[in-house]
């Protein structure tokens, strides 16, 4: 576990996970203050060296605020905090994070956010589509995201940011097991 005030990532790190939650009260914009915290320059270096990064929920917001991932996450269209399971459709299973899924497979991931509406300009959206960088789309777009986008990859596909919570879908008794294969996929890639 690394804290925001640390400045280094251990040498042999394979994967950095920026978890969900809230950071610095999410003042100014979600993830904006966290994006300026001391650890983030080490995370940016790790990204530039081709390290694997997974940003979930607030972690995704932080990755967009640091420009590691393009676009921004803004207040849900209905102005409400939404906390429920959502159907998520796999868009690209040919990556280290999604290799154990199939294209167009429907998953059930919980979402829990107030600022999850993904926005990017038309040029940026076309680039994401052309480069096959949309990871997941919502079936029923709960927050008004552009093109139903729930998660995207970096250019090298070694960074994944998504608003839904795969880590809350790894046990059949609490939330289901849809998220398990995301972690299995990435573990398989790094081992």
């Amino acid at each position: 576990m690394l804290w925001h005030k640390e400045v280094n990532i251990p040498e042999n790190t394979d994967l950095v996970i920026l978890p969900g939650g809230f950071s610095y009260g999410d003042y100014l914009r979600c993830g904006a203050i966290a994006a300026k915290s001391p650890i983030m320059s080490a995370i940016n270096d790790f990204y530039l060296k081709g390290g694997f990064i997974l940003g979930i929920c607030n972690g995704f917001q932080i990755l967009t605020e640091t420009n590691i991932l393009p676009g921004a996450l803004i207040t849900n269209q209905n102005q409400k905090f939404i906390c429920k399971k959502e159907e998520i459709i796999v868009q690209n299973s040919n990556t280290d994070f999604t290799s154990l899924y199939k294209n167009n497979q429907t998953l059930s991931y919980p979402i829990a956010h107030h600022d999850g509406r993904y926005f990017i300009d038309q040029k940026g959206l076309s680039k994401l589509i052309e480069e096959d960088r949309i990871a997941f789309k919502y079936k029923n777009n709960p927050n008004g995201s552009i093109d139903n986008i729930a998660g995207i990859f970096s250019e090298n596909k070694r960074v994944l940011g998504l608003m839904p919570h795969p880590e809350r879908a790894i046990d059949k008794d609490i939330g289901g097991t849809s998220g398990k294969n995301l972690f299995k996929s990435i573990l398989q890639s790094i081992s």
Binding site: A32, K36, P70, A72, F119, D121
Partner: peptide, 8 residues
């Protein structure tokens, strides 16, 4: 750098 996010 901080106060505005030029994307939005």
């Amino acid at each position: 750098d901080i106060l505005a996010n030029p994307v939005i």
